[in-house]
Design a protein around this nucleic acid. Structure first.
Lengths: 235, 235
DNA sequence: CGATGAATTGACATGACTCAACAACTGTGG
DNA sequence: CCACAGTTGTTGAGTCATGTCAATTCATCG
């Protein structure tokens, strides 16, 4: 499941790193080739199947990840056993930033779709970030982005009626810019994102289909009535 | 409402900065006196009364704040007008980090108690963080801390029944280490933290008082049955 | 196919919201 | 110092949304 490439290869655009978030996401954008040569540890590419666990909560580790494609859920568990999805990590996003200042991963990271990622030795990133202002700034931007995301989950996905939460979630899952389509996940995952039961999730989706807010294109693939959903949220 | 001190004074421990989070929180711990002299802008001390607004969402600004004493709530508003408290910022915490990577404050910051803070020009912090590894690392730690807080709000304060949320909140508001006492806020603020109505907040507190989970020491000051509350959460 | 797990739907119970009345507290001006 | 208004907190009654439990259908895969 792991294919090794050296970081120099990654930088050169060898292997199949040309489309990799490594380049496009600017995480290592400001680095010179010389910077890369400081890193001796190899970078690993990983492929996960849906359901695969990348790391568990409380686990020690020394790696940072970038998502090249696919989708990862970050899960936390409550004392009474219920689980809660606290964030989704998608293409070009970074995973495991908490290891730069702590010793343990703070979530359970599980693939929702087939996912490709790259794994970097934390030590190297830490070292580089101290010398390289662009990387330094980029890391702060990523932290801030995660924080903004967290706020959105709190306000939009965890407040108000099940219908409003669902509408907010659907709108956030829209693919590209001008698209009105989105793919959704298992009812259990949806419930765990919105803090509602699977039954309520299922019923709400059914109702949206009945009232025309959703049109099912194929299994779990929908076309949204964006205006209608926004009206529902504001009501 | 604002008293000026130069940053050199702050560093020298003049003014009344001896107990200031500036020193104890390590935000500027790794800086040499020479570092400080690079900053020409003055640091301002501010005092807020409960209800005072430090900044509003979407506002442009160029300042970072540390809380010396007191408590600030960070609020966001939803399209339908409801407000949500997304975090509390207390002594030694930093406020407005988002300005380091963006142009606008992302919350409305309102004092819950009489609050003292120091205001730093963002530009100076940005500049210093690029040269000073300790400050750089400290900033990352602060971001991570905010993120961890956000996750806790999502899992513990926004999931499960009103009783469980309330129990979690009360336990988090306990003052020191070995204390079992806490001060709480208006029912409206509590509702806005837990995403419940004021009535439910009031009823839940009344019930806790009746069942002995809470003992009222004085107005909004309680002694908690920690074990009982924890049992409730795990049930 | 049959078997397994996921999704849907129904019936019912209940927790939280809504609306409304009232009590407690705060500050103001006479 | 009291009367008053304005705010905040408490409590009750009724409604509605969501959770719970159970039965049924649907989808997937060996």
């Amino acid at each position: 499941m792991a294919k090794r490439v050296t970081i120099t290869q990654a930088w050169n655009g060898n292997a199949d790193c040309l489309n990799c978030s490594l380049r496009s996401s600017a995480l290592f954008n400001g680095l010179t080739e010389k910077d890369f040569e400081l890193i001796h540890d190899p970078v690993e590419q990983l492929n996960l199947k849906p359901g695969d666990v990348l790391y568990r909560m409380g686990e020690a580790g020394h790696h940072l990840f970038t998502v090249r494609s696919g989708l990862i859920k970050l899960v936390q568990y409550l004392p009474d056993g219920t689980q809660r999805i606290v964030r989704l990590v998608k293409s070009t996003d970074v995973l495991g930033l908490e290891m730069m200042v702590g010793e343990q991963y703070e979530h359970e990271a599980i693939a929702l779709r087939p996912t490709e990622l790259c794994r970097y030795p934390m030590e190297a990133v830490t070292r580089l970030s101290q010398h390289n202002a662009v990387l330094h700034k980029d890391l702060m931007a990523r932290w801030q982005k995660a924080l903004t995301e967290a706020d959105i989950w709190l306000t939009k996905l965890s407040t108000g009626s099940a219908k409003k939460r669902m509408a907010n979630m659907l709108l956030r899952l829209i693919d590209g810019e001008d698209s009105t389509e989105c793919y959704i996940y298992s009812r259990e995952d949806i419930g765990s994102m919105l803090s509602i039961t699977v039954e309520t999730a299922s019923r709400t989706i059914s109702e949206f289909k009945r009232t025309g807010l959703l049109k099912e294109i194929s299994h779990n693939h929908f076309d949204l009535d964006v205006a209608g959903l926004e009206a529902l949220i504001a009501s």
